[in-house]
Design a protein around this nucleic acid. Sequence first.
DNA 1: TCCCCTCGCACATTTGAAGCGC
DNA 2: AGCGCTTCAAATGTGCGAGGGG
Length: 455
Amino acid sequence: AHHSCLTLKLKSNFSGPPPASMAAGPDPYLQGSIRMTLEDLELWKTFHEIGTEMIITKPGRRMFPHCKVNLSGLIQCAKYILLVDMVPEDGFRYKWNKEKWEVAGKAEPQPPCRTYLHPDSPALGSHWMKQSVSFLKLKLTNNTLDQHGHIILHSMHRYHPRFHVVQADDLFSVRWSVFQTFTFPETSFTAVTAYQNTKITKLKINHNPFAKGFRDEGTNKKRWVSILTPCIFLSHPLLCAFSGFCQSSYDGYDGEEGRLAKRKVEDAVKEERYSPWGAERQQGVRTDSPAGADTREIYNTEQLVPAPASYQPYRAHEYGKSPSPSSSVGSSITGSGRSSFESRVPDIATDPDHDSSKPGPSHCGPQTLPGPQDYSGVLNMTMAQAGKPGVIGHHIYSPYSTEQPLGQWSGPGPAQYPPPHPLSADYTTQAVHHGYHHGNVGEWSQYPLFSYSCW
DNA sequence: TCCCCTCGCACATTTGAAGCGC
DNA sequence: AGCGCTTCAAATGTGCGAGGGG
């Protein structure tokens, strides 16, 4: 009931006519019409306004809220693979200091990049569209030596998930496949080993069924006595935002649902204001612009030079000081899609316990629906394995390949980077573009998702 | 001392096997 | 034998808070 239906068709974001390559038609390579919406958007926003934190542990921890999306615009009979990875929001490390997050220095070198493969992958478009797609079992860890395929993050660093929809029959053809990437500003979070913001703790307890035991109305009433400092519950988030971070301001959780409902009306206005990251946003370059985007910008920005075999330098350098997948999300400013040539080599993680049962036969005619596919040879591949020389040959599988020469930056000038203030970084512009509160950013690309084959 | 991380714990939900009746 | 339902225990997911390391 909470999922967002207010998505923009990617093409509708363009102020000018879409390129010919994006024209509607039966061409199977036309990916621009794929739409993805985030479910539980209201819940995500609630967390986002406070500053979402996600616990990371050695054995791996699920996200809450967990990523759940709806897809439309897929070709019913075509097969798709859904991937999720985590992108640093910026190049900083943070610390929690008296009710707010502060920059605590440069980000640590990024851990091995991993991409979570949805266990249903590959599946027909009809399968992905018939119901919401949940990434419930995605787990986050801070164990850089993790053997379970969980996504490795650094504590006290900020990230946001990226969702990749790849039209591919199997994992082996991913690198030649067209794909589309989506990000949702509301899903950004700070990875922590222990919650810093007590308001986040309370939100988690009150919304996560597994944490019911810690709820006030539960059997354990004494749990929160110590932290329930006197503070009037501000039923309107605006009040809370403008009064600073109200200590233990979520005492009245019985009214949470009503609060959420009430807030819908004012989403558009307050979205920018409430995030704790927005406190310093005023100092940032506010490049607010109408929803209409410059088409050229959309199609030519954020082209990443294919990274060398070693992936580590890519992250370490680019996220900190140059246009990067993460920083560029907000930097495209428009809130509409942007193309993204992904140069990372994924270390794909899957649910190891998944039974690999694939969706049943469809009405799409004769299908060679393979049984469980054994990807053991390609999953969780280490970067060392992936980064072999001589695999750079990009196989451009798209009719549009000539529009954007590979390996060239053609994005916004460096003037937009770095942001004037660390905390206002890309989050600033990110918030700007999600002012339309659709929470949907489509990143369109006709390029292979992974420039280097690791399988 | 401070900050951050790990671990064991209690409490919750989820999952799946077992038992039962039709 | 197969199906559907219920029960129950194990597995798993939570945050708490003490303790430890840098």
